[in-house]
């Protein structure tokens, strides 16, 4: 299997995520799009560690292991983020009775 396929998939996921973040106003959707972007990166990391580094250094047992380690880090961070972010969304809903981010332009004032 060629690595390019993974790369295309990851780019597609990432772009969907960006577009979702930019275009949608529902906070939960935005949130999910962010997750999508993170996972696009995760996918890339795993693909590269397995197909690129491991293929380049066949003799080494642990080749590319750090890339996969990063994936775990990102997952942990994403989990933390989800908890904080959902808390924010809940607070937001309590205040504005909506999850529309455009109601959140009070920073301006």
């Amino acid at each position: 299997m060629l690595i390019e396929r993974y790369i295309y998939l990851a780019i597609a996921l990432f772009c969907i995520g960006i577009v979702g973040v930019l275009a949608r106003r529902n906070a939960i959707i935005i949130f999910m799009c962010i997750e999508l972007m993170l996972n696009a990166v995760n996918l890339l990391l795993v693909a590269f560690s397995k197909m690129h580094l491991a293929a380049a250094l066949p003799g080494k047992a642990n080749a590319g292991i750090d890339g996969q380690l990063f994936v775990f880090f990102i997952m942990v961070v994403a989990a933390a983020e989800v908890s904080v972010g959902l808390a924010i969304i809940v607070m937001m809903y309590r205040n504005t009775h909506s999850v529309d981010v455009n109601f959140l332009n009070r920073l301006k004032h």
Binding site: V21, V101, L107, K108, H109
Partner: peptide, 14 residues
């Protein structure tokens, strides 16, 4: 520029 709209910020960031 500081419009307070998160979308704008993200767009600028991208």
């Amino acid at each position: 520029v500081q419009s307070g709209l998160v979308g704008n910020y993200v767009l600028l960031m991208v």
